Amino acid sequence: MPNHPELVNTLTQYRKAAGLTQSDLADKVSVSRKTINTVENGVFVPTTILSLKLARALEVSVEDLFQLP
């Protein structure tokens, strides 16, 4: 992640593996597509609540999506 090198972010890989577009995932967690884009690109670190919603929508753990190196 360009702005947060201390966080490993695999959201894009899990989203694509689930066959979802950014818009699809955004709809599932009630945020904008731009929010998903900024999280995937490391511009924005999601809140705990958003992280939990993303993990639930993708049927993975939060740790699958975001890790410390």
Score class of each variant (00 low, 15 high):
residue 23 S to Q: 14
residue 8 V to L: 09
residue 15 R to A: 08
residue 39 V to H: 06
residue 17 A to N: 13
residue 52 L to E: 13
residue 39 V to E: 05
residue 33 R to Y: 02
residue 22 Q to A: 12
residue 27 D to H: 13
residue 50 L to W: 05
residue 2 P to C: 11
residue 50 L to C: 03
residue 12 T to K: 15
residue 25 L to R: 10
residue 46 P to A: 05
residue 15 R to S: 09
residue 31 V to M: 12
residue 2 P to W: 13
residue 10 T to G: 00
residue 26 A to R: 03
residue 53 K to P: 01
residue 14 Y to I: 00
residue 24 D to Y: 04
residue 47 T to C: 10
residue 50 L to K: 05
residue 21 T to N: 01
residue 37 N to D: 11
residue 48 T to M: 12
residue 41 N to I: 04
residue 40 E to C: 04
residue 38 T to H: 14
residue 30 S to M: 11
residue 37 N to F: 14
residue 6 E to L: 07
residue 12 T to L: 12
residue 43 V to F: 09
residue 45 V to A: 10
residue 40 E to W: 06
residue 47 T to N: 12
residue 4 H to Q: 04
residue 28 K to A: 15
residue 14 Y to F: 15
residue 28 K to Q: 14
residue 34 K to T: 12
residue 6 E to I: 02
residue 54 L to F: 07
residue 52 L to D: 06
residue 44 F to C: 04
residue 45 V to D: 04
residue 54 L to K: 09
residue 55 A to W: 06
residue 16 K to G: 03
residue 43 V to T: 12
residue 45 V to M: 01
residue 25 L to C: 12
residue 40 E to I: 02
residue 37 N to V: 09
residue 39 V to T: 03
residue 26 A to N: 01
residue 43 V to E: 08
residue 16 K to T: 14
residue 25 L to G: 12
residue 14 Y to T: 00
residue 54 L to E: 02
residue 46 P to I: 01
residue 21 T to C: 05
residue 12 T to P: 01
residue 23 S to N: 06
residue 37 N to W: 14
residue 15 R to V: 02
residue 42 G to R: 05
residue 25 L to Y: 11
residue 28 K to H: 10
residue 20 L to N: 00
residue 15 R to M: 03
residue 42 G to C: 08
residue 6 E to P: 02
residue 42 G to N: 09
residue 5 P to C: 07
residue 16 K to D: 07
residue 10 T to C: 09
residue 44 F to E: 03
residue 33 R to K: 15
residue 15 R to Y: 07
residue 37 N to R: 15
residue 24 D to F: 07
residue 40 E to T: 06
residue 32 S to H: 11
residue 46 P to M: 06
residue 47 T to D: 10
residue 52 L to F: 10
residue 35 T to H: 15
residue 41 N to S: 13
residue 36 I to H: 03
residue 38 T to F: 13
residue 44 F to T: 13
residue 4 H to M: 00
residue 40 E to V: 04
residue 41 N to V: 03
residue 43 V to G: 00
residue 32 S to I: 03
residue 41 N to E: 11
residue 49 I to A: 14
residue 43 V to R: 10
residue 25 L to D: 08
residue 23 S to I: 02
residue 51 S to Q: 10
residue 44 F to H: 13
residue 26 A to S: 09
residue 43 V to C: 00
residue 41 N to Q: 14
residue 26 A to C: 05
residue 54 L to T: 02
residue 55 A to S: 08
residue 18 A to Q: 11
residue 54 L to R: 08
residue 25 L to M: 10
residue 6 E to D: 13
residue 5 P to L: 08
residue 46 P to F: 03
residue 41 N to W: 02
residue 7 L to E: 00
residue 33 R to H: 07
residue 14 Y to Q: 10
residue 47 T to A: 13
residue 47 T to M: 08
residue 55 A to F: 11
residue 33 R to D: 07
residue 17 A to V: 00
residue 54 L to W: 05
residue 8 V to C: 09
residue 48 T to G: 12
residue 7 L to T: 03
residue 39 V to S: 05
residue 31 V to P: 11
residue 3 N to Q: 12
residue 50 L to I: 04
residue 46 P to Y: 01
residue 42 G to M: 04
